[in-house]
Amino acid sequence: MFEDLSFSLNGGSALVVTGANGIGKSSLLRTLAGLVPPSHGSIRLEGGAADTPPEEQAHYFGHQDAVKPALSVEENLQFWQNFTAPAPAPGFSVRSVTPLEALDTLGIGHTAQLPAAFLSAGQKRRLSLCRLLVTSRPVWLMDEPTSALDRRSETQLLELMNAHLAAGGLIVTATHSDLALADVLQLHLQAADAAALPVEDALP
C-alpha cells in the first residue's frame, strides 16, 4: 500500500493524515493498530511498556462503533472498561474515568440505562468515543472521528482530543475536516506516481 513512509511523533502532539479517498489513510491507521501486519518495517512506541506491543497501548476509533444494541449503554461501556487492558506510560497521565462520568462528559448520561438500540447514529458514535475515556491508553488512532457528529459534539470531541494531548498523549487521525488541535503535524498522502513520497518528521 505505501512505501518509504516513516514518521515519528512526540508525546503531546497529533498527526493529522490527509489525502484523497482510497489513498490509504484508513490502511495506515489499521496498520498502526496492528490489525494489518506491515509487509516490512516496524512500529515502535518508545517510553511505553517494553513487552507490550504498540497496538495494545493504543485506542482505535474507527468507522464501526462496536456497540451492541441488545446491551444497555452502561453495560456496553462497562464491558470495554473491564475488558481492555489499560496501558500506563511514563510521560502520560490520565486516569480512567468511570462509565457514567464518561457518558456525562459526552452528554449521553441520561441514556445510561437504555438499550443501545434506542440511540441515534450520533449518540452511538459518542458512546463509542466514551470507550477511549474509560480505559487510559496513551495513543489514540482515530479514523474520521467527526463523522456523524453534530457541531456541538464536534467541539466536545476537540476539547477531549486537546485534553488528551495536553496530558502527554499521542493522536493519529485521518480526517477531511479541519481540526483545531493544539499541536498538529500534517501528513499528506499522495498517489505513488508523485516523485517525492510524503515524509514528515516530528518537531522535537
Binding site: 456525562d104 462528559t105 434506542f118 476539547e159 477531549l160 485534553a163 495536553a166
Partner: peptide
C-alpha cells in the same frame, strides 16, 4: 424509553474531560 433517548440532556453542554495531573 425511545423518546427518553432522543431528548437532549440539559447538563451536558459544558462538561469536558480533565486530565488528572
Amino acid at each position: 424509553r425511545l423518546r427518553a433517548a432522543t431528548s437532549a440532556h440539559p447538563r451536558s453542554a459544558t462538561a469536558t474531560a480533565q486530565p488528572a495531573e
